Amino acid sequence: MRILLTDPILSRFTGELTRDGTDGHDWEFLAGRPDDEVVARLGGADVLVASRMTVPMAEAGADLRLVHVTGAGLDRIPLDALAPGTTVCNTFHHGRSIAEHVVMVALMLSRRVLRADRLLRRGIWESVALDPTLQLGGTLAGRTIGVVGFGEIGQQVARAAGALGMRVRAVRRNPDAPLPPDLRLDRVDGDDRLHELLAASDVVVLTVPLSSATKGLIGTAQLARMRPDALLINVARGPIVDEDALFTALVEEEIAGAALDVWWSHPKDGAGATGYTRPFHELENVVLTPHHSGHTRETFTGRAAEIAANIGRLANGAQLSNVVRGTAGR
């Protein structure tokens, strides 16, 4: 088979991608190439491994048997523009890495690490031992974390938070769906009980996929439901939160802080790019990271191995894993 790879991160894992029966295929590594060059190469290709596609790519890839997305999200894949016979699969393996990031930034905000680090670099030793007006930070143990969405990421967040002694509650589309046997939650509700989760949680973590139903899910009214000492952590997609509403809530201290790993735009070139329009970088109660909460070696070695295995299954006519569209391999 002829296989095109455009994902820049997976391009680092060619060894994992070409193991287990996929090394005999014709691989073309096109990461960093212009979109029009990718379009020109798609004719006659069997498989595209990519994190994003354009409509012209989908139209040029009429012969594609498989589009294998290199992550979980499908919001950058024009599914409706793909040929009817093209199967689409995704992959995960990022849940544990993102869960550890959630714990890390929650602790940073709770213990005011950003401020302490910044002041100490300037030679200022700010401590409650010296200043009786300073507030003490708090531990996460005994506090409530509310998880919005409960797929792989949400479940791993629950495991990590539970291990720290936090109470865990969640909202999901189907609250009656069975949970993994190792998970014990204080409460699981449907999406219609989001307002209750917001009001009851010390830390709110967003893990839902971006869709027409979740765009703008957290706005002025929802932020007003949160406690003044609560934290909001977004590891899902930027547009799930209303940017202006969040900035106002942080400036006016309607909530205590936020950790943002996802943004309202996704620049191709990192030079001078922020992904936001409001000056979040001026606020001390925000942790900013460039969409890398899941970027660990463990994430991408797992993804590369699973994608390679799926390509092997496609070649052998076997059932594919993580099929989100189509019937290839059945």
Rank of each mutant, 00 (worst) to 15 (best):
I311K: 14
R167Y: 04
R225L: 13
N322T: 09
T248V: 05
S265Q: 09
A236F: 02
A62T: 13
R325D: 07
L42G: 05
R122T: 09
G95L: 11
G151H: 04
E254L: 04
T207H: 03
I153D: 02
R96A: 13
T301L: 13
L260S: 14
V203D: 09
A236N: 02
D75K: 01
R96F: 13
I153F: 03
Q135Y: 08
E59G: 08
D192R: 05
D80W: 00
G162R: 00
T6G: 01
P178D: 15
A305F: 01
A161Y: 06
V171N: 05
A129E: 08
S51D: 14
E252W: 03
W263F: 12
T299W: 10
L134C: 00
R225Y: 06
V102D: 01
T139D: 15
V148H: 00
R33A: 15
L260I: 14
G146M: 09
T248I: 04
P78R: 08
V39K: 01
A259M: 01
G142Y: 08
D36R: 06
L82V: 00
E59K: 03
N310A: 04
T54F: 00
A62M: 06
R167H: 13
G302A: 06
T301F: 06
I145L: 09
L119G: 05
R115A: 12
G73W: 06
V171L: 12
Q222C: 08
L250I: 04
S293L: 10
A230Q: 02
P290W: 02
G154E: 04
A309V: 00
H295E: 11
P175D: 02
V287H: 03
L283F: 04
A83D: 14
I77P: 07
I124D: 14
D46N: 12
L288N: 02
T86E: 06
G85L: 05
A256S: 13
P279T: 13
D23I: 00
H266R: 11
I9Q: 10
G61D: 09
G43H: 07
D191A: 13
L179M: 14
E59M: 05
